[in-house]
């Protein structure tokens, strides 16, 4: 399978924060969700993928090309949606379009009008009068109007109401009908991912924890719940992290089959949400320090 984005052994240091030996590969024709808590390196990673930041060491390639020689070509083929507003406040959407369209060889006014109509956006009102949802739709319209093969979004659903989030997912599903498109987006609203993401890339404290497909995650991970008498030091080692209360324990395992063998019917096993996995991984990292 072809990789659209490849990061190899990327390092990037800031004051008090590092991206460490970070390698990922994003597959063509699929949706990859990029998850992690606040301040763990999601935006930094995306900025490196967009060449807005350069790694201290390691390589970044997009469409198999490097930025040094092919920046223009790469950027032509990406549609980028930021988490902050990058549109000019004092302009209307129409005026904004006239600026942006010249940057793209494949700009398509028909497509632009299609999205403007779909999203019910006003063309002549100043952008500063837009609500947060409208702003998002406007950014999306800009990103989708030049036949980009790769859509990269930084927290596209944050701050949006659930109805609009659903609508956005439908639009993404629609985009994916064309098998050549790839979507990579960061989020911490993990429920959005169940409905659209094929692969999940999980980052924590600047480190790549895993990239797995959604089915693998379901097959490997489980939440185990049971009485405290079942736990001892050795058994606790089997879990990524354990949360104990006076009434019992709850733990995350990355080896569901093994947990089934050990505990059988003595515990309740449940499908973890991505949130569970994020929570327990963070907790585990703290416990094992």
């Amino acid at each position: 399978m072809e990789n659209i984005i490849e990061l190899k052994n990327v390092h990037k240091s800031f004051k008090g924060f590092d991206i460490k030996n970070f390698s990922i590969a994003v597959k063509k024709g699929f949706v990859t969700g990029f998850i992690g808590g606040n301040g763990v390196g999601k935006s930094t990673t995306i900025k490196m993928i967009m060449n807005l930041l350069q790694p201290d060491s390691g390589t970044v390639s997009v469409f198999g090309l490097n930025y040094k020689e092919h920046e223009k070509e790469i950027k032509q083929r990406i549609g980028f949606v930021y988490d902050e507003n990058i549109l000019y406040d004092h302009l209307s959407l129409n005026q904004m379009k006239d600026i942006v369209k010249h940057a793209y060889e494949n700009w398509d006014d028909h497509l632009f009008n299609h999205y403007v109509e779909l999203f019910d956006l006003p063309l002549k009102k100043k952008i500063k009068t837009f609500s947060k949802g409208m702003m998002m739709k406007a950014s999306l319209t800009m990103a989708l109007s030049h036949h980009a093969e790769l859509i990269i979004m930084d927290e596209p659903t944050s701050g949006l109401d659930p109805i609009f989030r659903r609508e956005l997912l439908e639009i993404l599903h629609q985009l994916m009908q064309d098998g050549d498109k790839t979507i990579f987006f960061s989020t911490h609203i993990t429920t959005d991912l169940d409905m659209i993401a094929d692969y999940i890339t999980f980052i924590h404290n600047g480190e790549h924890i895993f990239t797995k497909d959604l089915i693998e995650i379901e097959e490997e991970y489980a939440i185990v719940k049971g009485g405290l008498e079942l736990l001892d030091r050795e058994i606790e080692q089997e879990f990524l992290a354990v949360r104990k209360s006076n009434y019992g324990f709850e733990a995350l395992t990355a080896n569901k089959g093994r947990a089934e063998e050990v505990f059988g019917d003595m515990v309740i096993m449940e499908k973890p949400t991505l949130e569970d996995i994020m929570y327990y991984t963070k907790k585990g990292a703290e416990q094992h320090v």
């Binding site: 024709g29 699929f30 949706v31 997912l169 439908e170 599903h173 629609q174 994916m176 009908q177 098998g179 169940d194 409905m195 659209i196 993401a197 094929d198 692969y199 497909d213 959604l214 089915i215």
Partner: peptide, 17 residues
Amino acid sequence: MRQLAKDLNVSLITTKR
């Protein structure tokens, strides 16, 4: 597979599997 994923609101990898 892509159409079914869209209609059911599930990820492509699910219908593919």
